[in-house]
């Protein structure tokens, strides 16, 4: 992190103060996008989203479906010749978009994350049936995975009841005190 931060746009400053990620470290070589396994599901390539932020097109960046299609595989961060942690940048973009109340184009992905975290907050551990129930009610993808769900139940891979932690208080407290993320 030796480069001086000087993009000086609203979003780049916010990202920098929250994560120490300096978008000017990226010199737009495109190696991240070349190796991205989900590039062909995106409209904007990963390096283009970084470019938007460099140039101050904050809305374009925060509403891009790219930040939600990113699978967090970290191939980009591993290969970046400038050591710019682009996977972490994508995390920061999602969190910023959520905090600003921006509706993600990939609503299902957001609902999945919300439903997943709800189980953890309530039970301390993941509870797959609860997750699927909450997710389906939010997205109305009611018929999804009917080809595997009954067999998963039969194999005992979907627990009917949640596996609760014994003491739920510490986890609930972590959730309460982490709300608002980095701030």
């Amino acid at each position: 992190m030796s480069t001086h931060h000087s993009a000086n746009t609203t979003l780049s400053n916010e990202i920098f103060s929250n994560t120490s990620l300096n978008v000017l470290q990226c010199y737009q070589c495109g190696k991240c996008s070349a190796g991205c396994p989900v590039r062909n599901f995106m409209i904007d390539a990963p390096n283009q989203v970084v470019r938007y932020v460099q140039l101050g097109f904050d809305d374009k960046a925060l509403t891009s479906s790219t930040i939600w299609i990113c699978a967090s595989c970290q191939t980009c961060s591993t290969r970046c010749p400038q050591n710019f942690d682009i996977a972490k940048f994508m995390d920061a973009m999602r969190e910023t978009a959520l905090n600003k109340g921006i509706k993600p184009s990939e609503k299902d992905s957001m609902e999945f994350h919300k439903a997943f975290l709800n189980q953890i907050e309530n039970h301390g551990r993941a509870y797959e049936l609860g997750l699927v129930r909450d997710y389906k009610l939010k997205t109305l993808n009611l018929m999804q995975d009917v080809e595997v769900a009954p067999e998963m139940l039969m194999k005992g891979k979907l627990n009917i009841l949640p596996h609760n932690v014994k003491d739920k208080k510490p986890v609930k407290k972590i959730f309460a005190k982490s709300k608002g993320g980095r701030k």
Binding site: N18, T19, S72, D91, A92, R94, E95, L98, M110, F112, H113, K114, F116, L117, I120, G124, R125, A126, V165, K166, D167, P170, V171, I174, F175, K177, S178, K179, G181, R182
Partner: peptide, 25 residues
């Protein structure tokens, strides 16, 4: 004893502090 979820992808994708605090516990 009484471990909790690490937050997995969903925590780090949406709330950085939470995603560090759960594993830290």
């Amino acid at each position: 004893n009484d471990w909790c979820c690490c937050g997995a992808t969903s925590a780090h994708a949406t709330n950085h502090l939470l995603s560090v605090a759960l594993p830290a516990r």
